[in-house]
């Protein structure tokens, strides 16, 4: 398979060129930045949530195609979901990207994530795909800690 088939799939390019839920949320419950100092990917993630539901989410991406597409698909997967579900989606995606085996099943709602599976073959790019998800995870931790007002940054290691 060529690089184009494997990595730069139609779906990825579509999300890259037309990212969903891009922009800012005024007065968001949580605003959190994510950076990958190695390659310079930077995102800002905004979401509104109470203790049960993540009602709205927006993302400002300045990353590569993989980073932008991953963030875009993520917003579609988690918007309007219960926090419980959101955490599960994060887990599913991270397991899919990080496990050695390639047998993570995606439910119908998460089908769109399938296009990112090919990224696994390019270890340096996995971090690009994970950045939005790790940033969301840290944002959720801040939400549950109750410290919603301070500026925070997730730094990819």
């Amino acid at each position: 398979m060529s690089l184009t088939d494997e990595l730069y799939r139609e779906t990825i390019l579509d999300h890259y060129h037309h990212p969903r839920n891009q922009g800012e949320l005024n007065n968001a419950t949580i605003k959190i930045e994510g950076v990958n100092p190695l390659c310079g990917d930077e995102i800002t993630l905004y979401f509104n949530a109470d203790d049960k539901t993540l009602s709205d989410v927006k993302i400002n991406s300045h990353g590569c195609s993989i980073n932008t597409a991953s963030g875009s698909i993520m917003t579609e997967c988690v918007k309007g979901q219960s926090l419980e579900n959101v955490k599960e989606v994060i887990n599913t995606f991270k397991t899919m990207m990080l496990s050695k085996e390639d047998n993570t099943e995606l439910s119908e709602e998460l089908e769109e994530l399938e296009c990112l599976r090919g990224v696994k073959k390019y270890p340096v790019r996995i971090k690009c795909a994970l950045l939005p998800w790790n940033t969301l995870q840290q944002g959720l931790e801040r939400l549950s800690s109750g410290k919603t007002d301070n500026q925070d940054q997730y730094v990819e290691k």
Binding site: Y8, C39, G40, D41, S65, I66, N67, R125
Partner: peptide
């Protein structure tokens, strides 16, 4: 409309090694 990271990867497919990123010069970026 092509992120340097993507460019670096595509060029690598042809055996061409370039660098993509902030080159340790973030203030200049």
């Amino acid at each position: 409309h092509i992120h340097p990271h993507d460019l670096g990867q595509i060029l690598n497919e042809s055996g061409i090694a370039i660098r993509a990123g902030h080159h340790c010069c973030q203030p200049l970026m």
